[in-house]
Design a protein around this nucleic acid. Sequence first.
DNA 1: TGCATTTATTGAACTAGTTCAAGCTTTTTT
DNA 2: AAAAAAGCTTGAACTAGTTCAATAAATGCA
Lengths: 195, 195
Amino acid sequence: MDYDLLKANFSRYTELTPAELTQVCTYYQERHISKGEYVLRKGEVCRFEGFVVKGCFRVFTIDDQGNERILYFAAEDWWIMEIDSFINQTASELSVQAIEESTILYITYSAKQELYNTLPKVERLFRIMSQTAVAAWQRRLIRNHSMDAEQRYHHFITAYPEIARRITNRHIASYLGITPEFVSKIRKRRLSNKG
Amino acid sequence: MDYDLLKANFSRYTELTPAELTQVCTYYQERHISKGEYVLRKGEVCRFEGFVVKGCFRVFTIDDQGNERILYFAAEDWWIMEIDSFINQTASELSVQAIEESTILYITYSAKQELYNTLPKVERLFRIMSQTAVAAWQRRLIRNHSMDAEQRYHHFITAYPEIARRITNRHIASYLGITPEFVSKIRKRRLSNKG
DNA sequence: TGCATTTATTGAACTAGTTCAAGCTTTTTT
DNA sequence: AAAAAAGCTTGAACTAGTTCAATAAATGCA
């Protein structure tokens, strides 16, 4: 099992010694998820925190009319969980589905609690990780208010070219909050402006 | 000085003994801010984390064309800071301005570091607070994608009736990501539907 | 108190994005 | 390899929300 990606992710937030990093990783287990499989469904309790080692997931909501809204994509080096459901062990508002053959490293709720108590430095690690995430979500909200659909599309494909290549137009549309038809029209416009 | 509101806020996230709560509060100082005054301007480094005891603030961005977008309002029991700027001590993307005569309790960057080191439980407190905030920002993003302007307006005034009464329509518009004119039209529509 | 400034309302013309429907392409399944 | 299913593209008609302009109302200031 290869924990290098996970270790690198952790090291971005707090300095841990190689021994500490290795110790933390022992709490994480590997799991393979096939394309289309759900790791979490709306209404279930999120019992794990997952780190994507290989593959890609979509994290999304389903509203009363059955419309799906993709909140984010999680490819290599991203986390998948329903944060509220995981920390309070309550019903999840989100679903998480693999859109490729994937491998994750996951930690259960009880193992996570044990990890926090065993190695208090991990508390700081996830504190900083979460604070960084808050800032990122705030920036995304501002982008959504200050950019139109075409600008948001352009921002997405330049900020995440890797992910953009791997997903369908419908998924991009759902992520951007617009219709798939309008994504087609934006693409057409962009092509004719460049040709 | 009255730390009750701050203590109650902390207690929502982690259990601390009365002694610990009191100890934590000694790191926070009171400051009065007059209406219209800025506590942070875009480009400055955010050197404090503030908790609103009395009054109301707007936290907002200014884009290249000079357009302001309100990210959130912070009245009593809310926090004001630029989280990214505070944790990394880098230039802030946001500005924070008092829209009423206000009182805050604030902690400086170095005092916060000292607090984390002196009382490690605080690390957990802010870890949970930040994780809760991530979930809240995710929910807000989903609302923005799945509701139209009228639904968003209605959600805001029913979720935060207190704040809605205290701010102008322009501010609500800026928060909702629509024009002030359209807020007027929504209000008119709502009135005639009820009369 | 009166003047100046900001804020709210309303309407008419406009635009970004949606909806629906049809035909085409690609992927998945058998 | 064929059939089925899902995804993409395009256009025409529509709608939610914007822009601009003018007027009225509220607020701040000397």
